[in-house]
Simulated assay, not measured.
Amino acid sequence: MTVKNYFPATGNTLVDVGGGLTRKVAAHNDNVMCVEVHFETGTVAALHSHPHEQITYVISGKFAFTVGTETYTVSAGDSLYKQPNIEHGATCLEAGTLLDIFTPHRADFL
């Protein structure tokens, strides 16, 4: 099996998810995935859950994130951890970009 080690930015397509949200899958394999997510101000990522562990790092912008029963206002440099199957979602307060890391990878994003 050949492992892909390099994922140039020009090889990854920005996908319009709708509602002011776009994303680009970056490096990934079966065990981990890196996704760049762009939000317009006012965009809502509805509450949801999935079996993947997820870490979100805020590159830019300002967001209200709900994880479980807690809501956090986060901005550039902040990060969040979401355990498997925990309900979470976000509202974009100021346009920005997030970096999401999932384990295992999100087959539904490929």
Rank of each mutant, 00 (worst) to 15 (best):
M1A: 15
T2V: 14
V3I: 15
K4H: 14
N5W: 10
Y6A: 12
Y6K: 15
F7C: 13
F7N: 09
F7L: 12
P8F: 06
T10V: 07
G11E: 12
G11P: 01
T13G: 04
T13A: 10
L14P: 01
V15C: 04
D16C: 02
D16Q: 05
D16S: 06
V17A: 14
G19E: 04
G19K: 12
G19L: 11
G20Y: 05
L21G: 07
L21I: 13
L21Y: 00
L21A: 08
R23M: 13
K24G: 09
K24C: 14
V25D: 11
V25W: 05
A26L: 15
A26H: 13
A27H: 02
H28V: 01
H28Y: 08
N29T: 04
N31D: 11
N31A: 14
V32M: 10
V32N: 00
M33Q: 15
C34K: 14
C34V: 09
V35Y: 10
V35M: 13
V35K: 15
V35T: 15
E36S: 05
V37L: 05
V37Y: 02
V37H: 03
H38N: 08
H38G: 01
F39R: 06
F39T: 07
G42V: 06
T43K: 06
V44L: 09
V44P: 07
V44I: 13
A45S: 10
A45N: 06
A45P: 01
A45E: 03
L47T: 03
L47K: 03
S49E: 03
S49T: 04
S49W: 01
H50Y: 04
H50M: 05
H52A: 12
E53Q: 15
E53Y: 10
T56I: 14
Y57I: 08
Y57T: 04
Y57K: 04
Y57C: 03
V58M: 07
V58A: 03
S60I: 08
G61M: 09
G61L: 10
K62S: 14
K62L: 13
F63L: 12
F63T: 11
F63Q: 10
F63I: 12
A64S: 11
A64Q: 11
A64E: 13
T66W: 04
T66R: 13
T69V: 14
E70K: 08
T71A: 02
T71D: 01
T73A: 09
V74R: 13
S75F: 06
S75E: 15
S75D: 12
S75I: 12
G77T: 00
G77W: 00
G77M: 00
D78H: 09
D78P: 00
S79M: 05
Y81I: 07
Y81Q: 10
K82T: 13
Q83W: 02
Q83A: 09
Q83I: 00
I86S: 08
E87Y: 10
E87H: 11
E87T: 09
G89K: 05
G89D: 05
T91Q: 11
C92T: 03
L93P: 12
L93Q: 14
E94A: 15
A95M: 07
A95S: 14
A95D: 10
G96F: 08
G96E: 08
T97Y: 00
T97N: 01
L98Y: 01
L99R: 11
L99A: 06
I101A: 01
F102S: 14
F102A: 13
T103A: 14
T103H: 00
P104L: 13
H105V: 02
R106F: 07
R106M: 09
R106C: 09
D108K: 08
D108C: 06
F109L: 12
L110N: 00
L110W: 07
